[in-house]
């Protein structure tokens, strides 16, 4: 009996671990700003900032978008789910703006923790990180 219980326990543990792993693999993404930014924003407003179509949020505050470097998973997901563009589509989109001098893509920051640090220190920056990395030093504008 205790043997069976042990097996069940182990199984539950494995399942829980798997759930935990999968949820971390598909953790939510939080769009973060400095706590002093009180405006709210729609997905469209955020996409406009990250696509260089606008430099401000409705209400007038100027925000500089920053991205997470590399073809890392979080950036690909952010591009696909929020900006609605595949990585190669987005790259072509930016090359159209960059080489016509119209806009520059968000700067790539080497890690999510560095993004957190920068946004926490700069009232004029907007970034995105995994929700589980969010701390009190920033405000979550949107998560998905």
């Amino acid at each position: 009996m205790s043997y069976i219980r042990k097996i069940v326990k182990t199984r539950v543990l494995i399942v829980l671990t798997l759930v935990a792993m999968s949820s971390s693999a598909f953790a939510e993404i939080a769009v973060i700003v400095h706590p002093s930014v009180s405006q709210s924003a729609t997905v469209k407003d955020i996409a406009k900032l990250f696509l260089g179509k606008s430099k401000t949020l409705p209400g007038g505050i100027k925000l500089i978008p920053i991205a997470v470097e590399g073809s890392g998973e979080i950036t690909t997901r952010f591009n696909k789910d929020l900006l609605r563009k595949e990585d190669s589509q987005l790259k072509a989109y930016w090359s159209r703006l960059v080489f016509t001098g119209k806009a520059q893509p968000p700067k790539d920051i080497e890690s999510e923790s560095k993004v957190l640090e920068l946004v926490a220190a700069n009232p004029n920056m907007i970034g995105y990180i995994s929700s589980d990395l969010v701390s009190d030093s920033v405000r979550v504008l949107h998560s998905f």
Binding site: K91, A92, S95, R96, F99, T100, G101
Partner: peptide, 23 residues
């Protein structure tokens, strides 16, 4: 406002005619 040597925006792709990656 821009001043200097600029591309003539004749067509959709004029501005980035040489940037093959963009189309």
């Amino acid at each position: 406002a821009r001043a200097g040597r600029l591309r003539i925006p004749f067509y959709k792709y004029s501005d980035f005619l040489d940037v093959g990656y963009a189309y």
